[in-house]
Computed example of a mutant assay.
Amino acid sequence: MSNTENRCRLVLVAPDMPDIAERARVVGDALKGGDVASVILPQYGLDEADFQKHAEVLVPIVQKAGAAALIEGDTRVAGRAKADGLHVSGGADALAEAIERHAPKMIVGGGNATDRHRALEIGELRPDYVFFGRIDGDIKPEAHPRNLALAEWWASMIEIPCIVMGGTDSQSALAVAETGAEFVALRMAVFADPAQAPSLVAAVNALLDEKAPRFED
């Protein structure tokens, strides 16, 4: 078993699948591939009732695999589904409200940190993590250069962990790790071909084990 605590770890963004059973199977299979720190469950186009149903099925699967289940945005859904935390995609105001109401009982993090000023505003709120990029922002093979630059700047001076959205190529995880970021988020890089998800999670972990820089104690 590799030591994942001293290197960048993988965060998965659950794929957009309207069928609950298929989504649960695909996410569950991916989690069998190796170390995953957390899984972010976006609402996508689901109404609250359907999002609730998805969360109630997916959260236990994620937790059973030893990962943290983070619900995007909807605090009521997160509470009812007994999720581990909230991912807030809005700006500082939305994040501040979520932290005030739900921390430290729940993990609360997020972002919309599109530049250094916004990142520092978010950092002043002391969230559990800051997210660079959008959870649906994996539109190119590589991670967005701006997010990599922000992460490198952030990791060099701020203790709050950061998650950086990777690209559609699983190899983009290494570029994120090289910034000093604690976590890399992948979505389409893992789930574009659901049958390959477990082996891709395993491959990303092997890549990070071999080549990711190690954090100092």
Rank of each mutant, 00 (worst) to 15 (best):
S2H: 06
S2C: 00
E5P: 02
L10I: 03
L10K: 02
L10W: 06
L12N: 03
L12R: 03
L12C: 04
V13M: 03
V13H: 02
P15M: 07
D16H: 14
D16Q: 14
I20L: 00
A21Q: 12
A21V: 07
R23F: 07
V26H: 13
V26P: 10
V27G: 06
G28Y: 03
A30R: 03
K32G: 13
D35W: 04
S38R: 07
I40Q: 12
Q43R: 14
Y44K: 00
G45R: 14
G45I: 08
A49D: 14
D50Y: 14
F51K: 08
E56N: 14
L58H: 07
L58W: 09
V59P: 09
I61E: 13
V62N: 13
G66P: 01
G66L: 02
A67T: 09
A69K: 08
G73Y: 14
D74N: 15
T75P: 07
R76C: 03
R76D: 11
V77F: 01
K82G: 04
A83Q: 01
A83V: 02
D84I: 01
D84Q: 06
H87A: 15
H87V: 14
V88R: 02
S89I: 14
G90M: 12
A92C: 12
A92G: 06
A92W: 05
D93E: 11
A94Y: 05
L95G: 04
L95Q: 03
E100H: 11
R101T: 10
R101Q: 15
H102S: 10
I107A: 00
V108N: 00
V108L: 01
G109S: 10
G109H: 07
G111K: 03
N112Q: 14
D115L: 00
D115C: 01
R118D: 11
A119Y: 02
L120R: 07
G123L: 01
P127I: 03
P127D: 11
D128N: 01
F131H: 05
F132K: 07
R134G: 14
I135H: 13
D136Q: 13
D138M: 02
K140C: 09
P141D: 02
E142D: 15
E142I: 04
E142F: 07
A143K: 01
P145W: 12
N147W: 06
N147C: 07
A149T: 11
W153A: 04
W153V: 02
W154C: 00
A155K: 02
S156F: 05
M157Y: 05
M157G: 14
M157P: 00
I158N: 12
E159M: 12
E159I: 08
I160C: 12
I160M: 14
P161A: 02
C162V: 10
M165D: 09
G166F: 09
G166W: 10
T168F: 10
D169L: 10
Q171G: 12
S172W: 10
S172L: 05
S172D: 09
A173D: 01
L174F: 03
A175F: 01
V176C: 06
A177F: 05
T179R: 08
G180S: 08
A181P: 06
E182Q: 14
A185I: 00
L186H: 13
L186K: 12
M188H: 15
A189I: 08
A189R: 11
V190E: 09
F191I: 05
Q196C: 00
A197Q: 12
P198T: 11
S199M: 12
A203E: 15
V204H: 10
L207S: 13
K211M: 05
K211A: 08
K211E: 13
A212V: 03
A212K: 00
A212W: 02
D217H: 15
